[in-house]
Amino acid sequence: MEFLGQDRREGLGRKANSRFVLFLLIAVSVLLLLSSLYSAQASVFKKAREGVIDAASPVLEFFAGPIAYFNDVTGSVSDYFNVLEQNKALRQENAELRQWMEQALELRETVAAYQGLQSYAAPPQAQPIDAYVIGEANDAFARSMIVNAGRIRNVESGQAVVDEKGLVGRIVDTGAHASRVLLLTDIQSRVPVYIEGADVEGILVGKTRDDPTISFTESSAPIEVIPGQRVLTSGAGGVMPRGLPVGFVEGMAGDDILINLYTNYVRTRLVRIINYEFPAIGAGGAEEAPTPVESDGPAPAEG
């Protein structure tokens, strides 16, 4: 520490930033890169990530409030110019939603009647964990967010994260007080989904673009999709619950089916992490996708 000050006094001490150290550190960086190529999930790296998220979370949390305020101020500047159109659109949407509400109320009564039947067994309830977004990778290629809930609140890797619109991503790193959410647009993101009405299971693949695509596990025949069809999580793999809204089919780009996500990452502030335990099914059933929870037979409610 002492030599830093002395070095300043000397002014032009050229040895302080030596080429040797620079080259050595470049070599270390390349080695780190190469090793993360072969072991991206190496426990040492994962531990380091989780530790840094944890250590940085108080700082991030401290700044997240003012940043959110600042975002609101800058974001609303453009709103002033189209407030009338927005009002019109919202009024129309409100009218449509009221119709949906009537239908929903009717359905609620019907469902209540069915639930009254003797043979009904409730599906296991998910345990939601609410958290704020306190960090976001402002990086062109790494798409992730940091939320202020961690192991202490039962957050685990793989759990689904949703906001008020739909699926946001899934947990990849968990510190004690904060965790990282891998967004659906990240190049590493793979989420099992199905297209409503098409009855095909597929994998939602992130492309670092705004719209992820669906690739199918068994692409025997070309799959017919209609733009506007809903895409929901399939629950295959047994981590995320089935039926979380993801987005809708936007169209085709070559062989890929482009999906427009319901969630808008620019507005994601409050999220819900879904701590869900699947009803126990036969061990070793990895080949077969789990049966939908809604239509599942009697199963012991866990967690």
Binding site: L22, L25, I26, V28, S29, V30, L31, L32, L33, S35, S36, L37, A40, F45, A48, R49, V52, I53, A56, G135, A137, N138, D139, F141, A142, S144, I146, V172, D173, R180, L182
Partner: peptide, 17 residues
Amino acid sequence: DLLTGGPLGLWAGVYLV
């Protein structure tokens, strides 16, 4: 690298170069 979740050593290497 650690905070944004990218591969370790990428930004470190870029800045050093």
